[in-house]
Computed example of a mutant assay.
Amino acid sequence: MKFGVVVFPGSNCDRDMYDSLLQDLGQEVVMLWHKDTDLSAFTTEDCIVLPGGFSYGDYLRCGAIARFSPIMQSVTKFAGEGGKVFGVCNGFQVLCESHLLPGALLRNANQQFISKNVYLRGVGDQGCALKVPIAHGEGRYYADDLTLDQLEANGQIIYRYTDEDGNITAAANPNGSLRNIAGICNATRNVFGMMPHPERACSEALGNIDGKTILEALFINAKEKPAAKKAGLVNF
């Protein structure tokens, strides 16, 4: 499987994602500049990644300017043809601004930037919670009730914030996201977005490889039930 990591002006997690996919997961990775438009080297079995950071300085709204970068037209077409697209943090914001995913990411409920480890679990997963870092000021997922109900009914909420034991509680919600939502996918399950940073939790040297489990379940070993079940993504 080949991954293309898009670099916008202001991206700062692109190399983290590159290193995690290449070194920790052994995948082929290509860096893509935001002015590139040619994705012909990628098939629908591959994945385009929009990394975290502060694209265009987060001016106007997070991701609102990046959505107009030349490559996003190609990414939108790629997704429409069934290609996989994954956005993390700022990348999730770009996907929402581009309407590849529903809803929006608003200012954190405490009006402060938050950088810490949090716990997640996949919807329907009864296993242990996964510990993954967050680092954002605008990560509060919001959508109207109809959209939220549709996400629930379609199984599009892929991760929720939990406590260490996997319990979904208000106290475990770091940013005020509605229904403790940490990550979602589109209806056809080929576009994924999440605020936590799995690429920052893929190395034994860092003392945490829970992020590796997420990436493997979403993309690399999606058809292998043990890995997918641990991350709560058996239906993906």
Rank of each mutant, 00 (worst) to 15 (best):
F86I: 03
D14Q: 00
V94R: 00
L151W: 12
A182M: 08
L100M: 15
F54W: 10
M195E: 03
N110F: 08
A231I: 03
P226Y: 05
L148F: 08
W33F: 15
A129K: 06
V94P: 01
V88A: 02
L105M: 11
V29L: 01
A64P: 02
E81F: 12
V75Y: 05
D165G: 12
R107C: 08
K223P: 04
K229P: 01
P9M: 07
A187S: 15
Q23T: 14
R107E: 14
A129N: 08
I65V: 15
I134N: 02
P174Q: 11
N235P: 02
H197I: 04
Q93E: 13
A41T: 11
F54C: 03
N180Y: 09
S177N: 08
N173G: 08
C128R: 15
K225M: 13
E45D: 15
V7K: 12
K230P: 01
K229Q: 14
A41I: 12
A222T: 10
L120R: 04
K116R: 14
Q126T: 15
N117H: 13
I158D: 02
N208F: 06
N117P: 09
Q111D: 15
L95V: 05
I158L: 13
E164Y: 06
L105K: 06
A66I: 06
I209D: 07
A79T: 08
Y59H: 13
F192N: 00
I220P: 03
M17R: 00
L218Q: 03
N90Q: 05
P70I: 06
K131I: 01
S40W: 11
L39T: 10
V5A: 08
G193Y: 04
D46R: 08
